[in-house]
Amino acid sequence: MQIFVKTATGKTITLEVEPSDTIENVKAKIQDKEGIPPDQQRLAFAGKQLEDGRTLSDYNIQKESTLHLALR
C-alpha cells in the first residue's frame, strides 16, 4: 500500500509499505529515499509519536495515510 510522509520542510515522500511493516522498517525506507538516518527520525500520526517496534497496523495506519516526520 502507499503512504505519504510529510517532512518538516513541507516535502511529501511517497512510500510503498505493508500494514505489517514496523515503524523501524518505514524509517529505513525513508533513509533509502532521503538519506536521513533512522535514529534522527521521529514519526507521528494523528498526533501520536510512533514507536520503532510497533507496526503500521498497530496504529491503524491505512493506505494513503500521511505520517509526519520530524528530525531530532
Rank of each mutant, 00 (worst) to 15 (best):
M1W: 09
M1H: 07
M1E: 02
M1L: 11
M1C: 03
I3A: 01
I3Y: 01
T7H: 12
T7M: 04
T7Q: 09
A8F: 07
A8L: 12
T9C: 04
G10V: 04
K11E: 07
T12G: 04
T12V: 13
T12W: 12
T12R: 06
I13H: 04
I13V: 07
T14M: 14
T14I: 06
L15E: 00
V17A: 06
V17H: 03
E18R: 11
S20Q: 09
S20T: 09
D21P: 01
T22M: 07
T22A: 09
T22E: 04
I23H: 02
E24Q: 10
V26G: 00
V26L: 11
V26I: 13
K27P: 00
A28S: 05
K29L: 07
K29S: 05
I30Y: 03
I30S: 01
I30D: 00
Q31M: 08
D32E: 11
E34L: 15
G35Q: 05
G35I: 03
I36Y: 14
I36Q: 03
I36H: 14
I36D: 03
I36G: 02
I36V: 10
P37G: 14
P37K: 09
P38N: 13
Q41L: 07
R42T: 06
R42N: 10
L43A: 01
L43R: 00
L43M: 04
F45V: 08
G47Q: 08
K48T: 09
K48F: 09
Q49V: 13
L50C: 03
L50G: 01
E51Q: 05
R54S: 13
T55E: 05
T55I: 12
L56F: 03
L56P: 01
S57E: 09
D58R: 03
D58V: 05
D58Y: 13
D58T: 12
Y59F: 06
Y59L: 14
Y59H: 04
I61F: 02
I61E: 00
I61C: 02
Q62V: 10
Q62L: 09
Q62S: 15
E64M: 15
E64W: 15
T66P: 02
T66G: 02
L67N: 01
L67R: 01
H68V: 08
L69N: 01
A70H: 07
A70P: 02
A70N: 15
L71I: 06
L71F: 06
